[in-house]
């Protein structure tokens, strides 16, 4: 009889303790569910927004890649890309499967068509905007005239060498380096 009473007392003690522990668990789970519900609610529109952002950026990348290839040609476009971002040519352009393997001009050498394209796309692009520093860098007539001075008589048979060690320096000696 005593043994049974002791067993029942032990059962009561431990079961009541377990009940309290389970109540704590239930309360904690309620709080967790509330926080998780908040996460779900807050993150619900994220996918659609990110998809839209990605779609816009994809369209921009496609358009810019297409424009670059259209204007410069695939080999020179990839030479330009690799010249600006060394190693980037290996990844290639998304819409041009041959871009990763096409033979591109050397980085230190810019071909005739590439030079003009680079010049027009760069600081001499004739979009009729003026440099905030003063000199007319994007003036239409200025840009066009400066581009033509690269080859005042006739285009050379080979590509010109550019850089600080180039035999011909196209930049005016008194040019403002901060405006480049």
């Amino acid at each position: 009889m005593v043994a049974v009473v002791l067993i029942v007392l032990a059962l009561v003690y431990f079961l009541v303790s377990v009940i309290f522990a389970l109540q704590k668990i239930t309360k904690g789970l309620d709080e967790t569910i509330g926080a998780v519900t908040e996460i779900i609610t807050k993150s619900e529109p994220v996918n659609a927004i990110v998809d839209d952002i990605n779609a816009n950026l994809d369209a921009a990348v496609d358009a810019l890649e297409g424009l670059l290839v259209k204007k410069a040609g695939l080999p020179e476009a990839m030479g330009l890309v690799d010249g600006l971002y060394p190693g980037a040519k290996a990844e290639g352009l998304r819409n041009f499967p041959d871009s990763a393997t096409v033979k591109s001009p050397r980085i230190g050498e810019v071909y005739t068509r590439g030079t003009l394209t680079l010049a027009r796309l760069g600081r001499e692009a004739p979009i009729a905007a003026l440099s905030p520093n003063g000199p007319a860098l994007r003036d239409a007539r200025y840009g066009s005239a400066t581009s033509r001075t690269l080859y005042p008589i006739e285009r050379p048979g080979r590509s010109p060498i550019i850089g600080t060690n180039a035999p011909t320096q196209y930049e005016a000696p008194d040019a403002d380096p901060s405006a480049v």
Binding site: I49, D52, I53, N56, L57, A59, A60, A63, L64, L67, V69, K70, K71, A72, G73, E76, R113, L116, T117, R120, L121, A125, P126, I127
Partner: peptide, 28 residues
């Protein structure tokens, strides 16, 4: 939402700029 709108505006500007370049610059 702000980022989305800014991306849309930026892409629209890039498209306009690219369109102008397409007209101005000769094809390869």
């Amino acid at each position: 939402l702000t980022t989305q709108q800014q991306v849309r505006d930026t892409v629209a500007n890039v498209a306009a700029y690219g369109g102008s370049l397409d007209v101005i610059v000769d094809d390869a």
